[in-house]
Amino acid sequence: MTRLLELRDLSFGYDKGSPPVFERLSLDVAMGEFLIIKGPSGSGKSTLLRLICRLNTPRSGAILFRGRNTAEIPPPELRSKVTYVPQIPQMIDGTIRDNLLLSFAFAQGAQKKAPDDATLERMLDAFYLQGVTLAQSASKLSVGQKQRLSIMRAILNEPDALLLDEPTSALDAESAAMVFSIIERLNTDEGKTVLMVTHSDYQPDVPQARSCTFRNGNLECA
């Protein structure tokens, strides 16, 4: 199985003097895998995702993406391929279309062809956003709708892997079920690699699923 991400002896702590959040952590993620990361608050689950896309810098160790050290990949290129979706969805002021096409306005996404409205509308349906129009303001959506929109926006950037940080923590059961179903489909139908941090007991209904748990600074994988 091809490795998409390789974490090698990764150590991280917030400040120079502070105790490490974790030390010498290693993990391989295969292409197309659906990895659930669990553990108590403050154990380093979100940090792990942030380290992979270099929103935080490790104290020591290396992360390889398709065999390349991520420290040597230009950050915009890396983050377009390994896209982190934060816990609380963030929208820019503007319409839903403005938000969905945000990455195409950046130099990194400028070569890509932006999808037309018909494609976007089909996708809105697939993301359980029926009744939402492209021209309406994004600020009026519910948190659950914003979360689905932010995952859709990340997918439009065509990443290889999605790093999802507790995507359902602020959602009710019904909204959470929609988000889980979307993520499972992205994994099974489109082959997206998924790394998902969650507090819940959710078990994805996909063949490539694996679960890892933080215990006392170590990551134990089933």
Binding site: P86, Q108, N157
Partner: peptide
């Protein structure tokens, strides 16, 4: 700002 970085913004 971080959301934009994650979408490939420099």
């Amino acid at each position: 700002v971080e959301m934009k970085l994650c979408l490939g913004a420099n």
